[in-house]
């Protein structure tokens, strides 16, 4: 297996009775990348990540982490790997410090390392002031921060995250995103794969994307390449008064505009073409007498995601 790809999945298949959840899946996660693992519900994301973390067994195929096939030697493959699968629960009778100590003991760290690592991690996930309180009393957001914390024990080189912000309130999601952002910015030698349904979160955090549907890989590439692949950009035009049908029609008639419609007090347009097409569009909007005072580009990943999922059936 290539040393540039800490995670390498080859011909992976998982069947439940007659249902194929993962179908001959191939995936390479580049070293030091933050890869977003996307797909609609039931696409096979969680199944793939559960095979990678040895929670379920593959029907066939190989799944390598740091060059070791997790389907053959899960203990060796999961050494140096941190995981947060779905929303895990903790032993409610343990405190965050005891939980991290337990994980540290399982992975074979000595007492001194456990202590220093626990201090570092509790600070990183902002749980120092709660370190000696029982986890049974914690909110979901706090427990998820501990989940990230235990995944960081002993400085893993690979982290696997399965919908880490799922089920959290907006504040909890923002806190988790901040922790993950810090993780990305602070670590030089860390490879992360993260499944998520929250596309703006993926846009914000990830530099690579792997998109699957019906258990099959649709595309895997750099975020910038994937975002451009649809060739379309969704833009929002802010106008000083409520947009009239005439104003929307005028926008729709501009060059490179595929569609335009009123969206609340704004006009949302889909623009086709490269950067020069966008430059022309911005100029045209300025010269159009509709009272436009701002133009912003929306999340292109969503447009591309929907297009690719539609194409893949």
């Amino acid at each position: 297996m290539s040393s540039d790809n800490p995670i390498e999945i080859v011909g992976l298949r998982k069947e439940y009775g007659g249902f194929v959840a993962v179908d001959n899946l191939n995936l390479s996660v580049k070293k030091n990348s933050f890869t977003g693992f996307l797909g609609p519900n039931g696409a096979g994301k969680s199944t793939t990540l559960k095979i990678l973390t040895h929670l379920i067994n593959a029907s066939s195929g190989e799944a390598y982490i740091n060059g070791i096939d997790v389907t053959k030697d899960p203990k060796a493959a999961l050494t140096n790997v941190g995981t947060v699968v779905e929303t895990p629960e903790f032993y409610p009778y343990l405190t965050p410090r005891e939980t991290l100590r337990y994980v540290g003991q399982i992975i074979g760290m000595n007492t001194e390392s456990i202590k220093s690592e626990t201090d570092r991690i509790l600070e990183k996930v902002k749980m120092l002031e709660w370190e000696d309180k029982k986890l049974g009393t914690f909110s979901k957001g706090m427990r998820q921060r501990i989940a990230i914390g235990q995944a960081l024990m002993n400085g893993p080189s690979v982290i696997i995250l399965d919908e880490p912000t799922s089920g959290l309130d907006p504040r909890g999601q923002a806190e988790m995103r901040e922790i993950m952002k810090n993780l990305r910015n602070d670590s030089n030698n860390l490879t992360v794969i993260m499944s998520s349904h929250v596309l703006h979160e993926v846009s914000d955090l990830c530099d690579r994307i792997a998109l699957i549907n019906h258990g099959k890989m649709i595309i895997q590439d750099d975020m910038s390449v994937i975002e451009k692949s649809s060739g379309k950009r969704r833009v929002t035009i802010k106008v000083e008064s409520t947009p009239s049908p005439l104003m929307t029609h005028m926008v729709e008639q501009l060059d490179n505009v595929v569609s335009a419609e009123r969206y609340g007090n704004d006009i949302e347009a889909v623009v086709e073409g490269d950067i020069s097409a966008c430059v022309k569009f911005f100029k045209d909007i300025s010269s159009l007498n509709i009272g436009a005072y701002g133009v912003s580009e929306e999340d292109n990943l969503e447009t591309t995601y929907l297009k690719l999922i539609k194409e893949s059936g």
Binding site: T53, P88, E89, V103, I107
Partner: peptide
């Protein structure tokens, strides 16, 4: 049932 396996079983342990 309590989903604690998601922590313990995903560690490098047989």
């Amino acid at each position: 049932e309590e989903r604690t396996a998601l922590i313990l079983f995903t560690r490098p342990i047989k």
